[in-house]
């Protein structure tokens, strides 16, 4: 927690970017997430793992107020971003989503050109200068490791790209808004192994500038890319720790059963 120390020495004691305190999520009467609490360290990758339907995506969507968009969904508890509760009544969810970006499970580019996809965020925030937008597009596409592949076809429809390229485009689109935290909901689950490994390499790079929270159904992926791992089961946060601890010496029996393959 001492900001003057260099990040390299501070692997375990880094400031917590996000603090989740006693978060409950309800869909109508259904209690989908029960009293989850968690800290996410800055410039780290936090993996959320667990079997299908365990609530890991539900938890993720609570971190940028995406549940606001689902009629009938309700969130209780606090999520602190740099100490500020994003669910406080005076907070505008739009400004929160500006600071906490999200990449979805299926690539969801807009049916627009590659360029228009990347600069969508800056544009809706009022940016009109063409040179600036070009600069943002190039920087974001480079950060998403896509620039070399699309630099000659920025004016082509984004939907003509391959699935893996589309997903990296969605990451670039997210980076163009200059968020502090990036949430990823199984970003590679719809992709082939080569595209997946590109996304994984990218996530390693991203944590230098951003804090990443990623939902994954693959324990190998969690082990490869994350610094910390949190395990969910049946709408409960069971255990959280460094990735090596969770995979080598889990404290909870249920975590152990899951990582040794005893759940679906």
């Amino acid at each position: 927690m001492i900001p003057t120390m260099s990040p390299v020495d501070m692997r375990e004691e880094r400031a917590e970017k996000l603090i989740v305190q006693n978060v409950d999520v309800f869909y109508g009467q259904f209690h989908a997430m029960k009293k989850a609490s968690l800290g996410v360290a800055e410039h780290c990758v936090m993996a959320l793992i667990g079997p299908s339907g365990c609530g890991k995506s539900t938890f993720l969507r609570a971190l940028n107020r995406m549940h606001d968009l689902t009629p009938g969904a309700r969130v209780e508890g606090e999520v602190l971003l740099d100490g500020e509760n994003i669910y406080a009544p005076e907070v505008d969810p739009v400004s929160i989503r500006h600071r906490i970006g999200m990449v979805f499970q299926r690539p969801n580019p807009f049916p627009k050109t590659v360029f228009e996809n990347v600069v969508y965020g800056p544009r809706i925030h009022g940016e009109k200068r063409r040179e600036y937008l070009l600069e943002v597009a190039e920087r974001s596409l480079r950060s998403a490791a896509l620039w070399d592949e699309v630099k000659d076809r920025l004016d082509r429809p984004a939907l003509q790209l391959s699935g893996g390229q589309q997903q990296r485009l969605c990451i670039a689109r997210c980076l163009a808004v200059d968020p502090e935290v990036i949430l990823m909901d199984e970003p590679a689950s719809a992709l082939d192994p080569i595209a997946t490994s590109k996304i994984e390499d990218l996530i390693e790079d991203l944590k230098r500038e951003y804090t990443v929270v990623i939902v994954t159904h693959s324990m190998q992926q969690a082990a490869r890319i994350s610094d910390h791992t949190t395990f969910f089961l049946s709408g409960e946060l069971i255990e959280s720790g460094t990735t090596s601890d969770i995979f080598t010496k889990p404290k909870d029996k249920r975590t152990e059963d899951y990582i040794t393959g005893r759940y679906g």
Binding site: V94, R97, Y120
Partner: peptide
């Protein structure tokens, strides 16, 4: 997902509808 993608980029609901 088109609507959600726009909202997740920090747009208002109106912008999501008119721009995306």
């Amino acid at each position: 997902s088109i609507y959600e993608a726009s909202m997740a980029l920090g747009s208002t609901s109106w912008q999501a509808v008119t721009h995306a």
